[in-house]
Write a protein that binds this DNA or RNA. Structure first.
Lengths: 221, 221
DNA sequence: TAGATTGTTAATCGATTAACAATC
DNA sequence: TAGATTGTTAATCGATTAACAATC
């Protein structure tokens, strides 16, 4: 199975969520590509292509077996495995992430949380004591951790990322508001959350411009 | 200026961040599309197109004035205005969002926080007392709030969203893990954070498959 | 069987990239 | 001036959608 494109992963996540909700409500246990597409405002062909790409087949006149599709998506995206992670940064965001129980459904298990602040070290987070970042490298190596969640302030994030990658981390889920530089082969996902905000502020601003009858901008195409 | 596509907004945010960092480091005060493109791993034509689309012009042989570009992006995305928002849900995530000072740079100001839990109501959040959601509608109407940040548990989110839209909210930044149904004309941005996680778990899983020499999947294209 | 639904190939659409004349 | 860089048109590329034979 080739690596899926970003948009395909996003759509598969949408199918997964929709089907998990739908599962209990459907007597037949099956769903058509049309039903999925209608619920997520997509084209039915798109749905069939996405499912076909991860090896899921439907049946003519019947559709797709819901459990089979859910299972197939979970296998394709790796939700059927346990992904041990270290969480670095035990501020508000780190606490919010570690307290969200929904991630377990995707196989995520936070093995330990780290922080540099001596006041935070030793405090409890998710039933475990927060460790000092000094021990980060040793912990990652000893437990063979591959995934790190970075919820540190921007200033220290690159330094922590360097430490993580030198310890052998393979994937970083980056919540710090900056672009990390990492060695080839390390996968970074930047959770640049302000982008979502900017879409909404842009929308509100644009709406005002239209309402106030402002002339269209330089590119009305 | 026509409404920008999602990807264009995301790129503009990238330019904005890069230029804000670069500003102090560049003596000339200018930057070329090539430099921006190299830093963000994009095509220089893409950069020129994006900037042209929001009415920003450069100069041959010189490039773009950094301050002018930053200002243009801020105007286009609405960062030069104040966007008053209500925050609903004062759990870990709500606290994390309200404590992040970086949003102010994009014009966001959280006017008040709300929760349903009587234990939380009255507690302090960002220097203000958390209010009961009973008062949500009145507050939104009285202050003409247009934007809501939804950080509530999935079960109650649709109900809260209904209340918000009936009070006249125009945009919802939704952190609850479900798809909201809203009246036409209300703009929702779903911050489906697990998508980022799934990209990483998929990547790790796929890497293992390749390493273990698993035969390629059904669509090796 | 008839007909609803899939799986796949072909057509369309939009976004990205290349080319190059205009500009400074 | 010469040449670096923009702005814009044309070409390419990939992703989405349409069409339809195969399937159940």
């Amino acid at each position: 199975m080739p690596t899926l494109r970003r948009l395909a992963v996003e759509r598969l996540m949408g199918y997964h969520r929709f089907l998990a909700e739908t599962r209990g409500r459907v007597v037949s246990g099956t769903v058509t590509s049309d039903e999925i597409a209608a619920a997520l405002d997509l084209d039915a062909t798109q749905v069939r292509k996405d499912l076909g790409a991860i090896g899921i087949r439907g049946r003519g006149r019947i559709g797709y077996d819901i459990d089979h599709v859910i299972g197939g998506i979970r296998t394709a995206l790796g939700f059927d495995r346990t992904h041990l992670a270290v969480l670095v940064g035990a501020g508000h965001l780190g606490r919010a992430l570690s307290s969200y129980r929904g991630f377990a459904r995707y196989g995520l298990r936070i093995a330990a949380a780290f922080d540099t602040d001596p006041d935070k070290v030793g405090q409890s987070l998710g039933g475990q004591a927060i460790r000092h970042t000094r021990g980060l490298r040793g912990f990652v190596r000893h437990h063979g951790i591959r995934l790190a969640i970075l919820a540190t302030p921007a200033e220290v994030s690159q330094k922590i990322a360097d430490r993580l990658t030198s310890a052998g981390i393979e994937a970083i889920w980056n919540f710090a508001p900056l672009r990390l530089t990492v060695p080839q082969g390390v996968c970074v996902h930047n959770e640049h959350i302000s982008v979502g905000l900017s879409e909404l502020t842009h929308h509100l601003t644009e709406r005002d411009r239209v309402r106030s009858g402002a002339r269209p901008g330089p590119h009305p195409s």
